[in-house]
């Protein structure tokens, strides 16, 4: 993954807001890879324009959230997280 494309969880807040009804950047997660817990706003985000968004764990790079856009629909894969708290 190109390091220059790396953004913060904050950058995906608008897109993730189309899926979740709560404020995602302050939501807490635990990574399914390494167990790290944190807020999504502090995770790493890689955006592929018009195609999708991947949120990765800042410790182990595991993909926490994979979100693919297809026309007006989103496909969300949350298997990278043990849990996600609301807001």
């Amino acid at each position: 993954m190109d390091d220059k494309l790396r953004l913060d969880g904050n950058a995906a807040a608008g897109t993730l807001g189309e899926v979740f009804s709560f404020e995602v950047t302050t939501a807490e997660y635990a990574c399914n890879g390494c167990g790290r817990a944190g807020r999504l706003g502090g995770a790493m985000v890689y955006e592929v324009r018009e195609l999708g968004t991947i949120v990765r764990c800042p410790s182990c790079d595991n993909a926490l959230i994979r979100l693919a856009h297809n026309r007006e629909r989103h496909m969300v894969d949350l298997r990278g997280m043990r849990y996600l708290t609301t807001g």
């Binding site: 807040a13 807001g17 950047t25 807020r39 999504l40």
Partner: peptide
């Protein structure tokens, strides 16, 4: 425009 967005920063 859409927003305001983000509660972390």
């Amino acid at each position: 425009l859409r927003g305001p967005i983000g509660g972390y920063f």
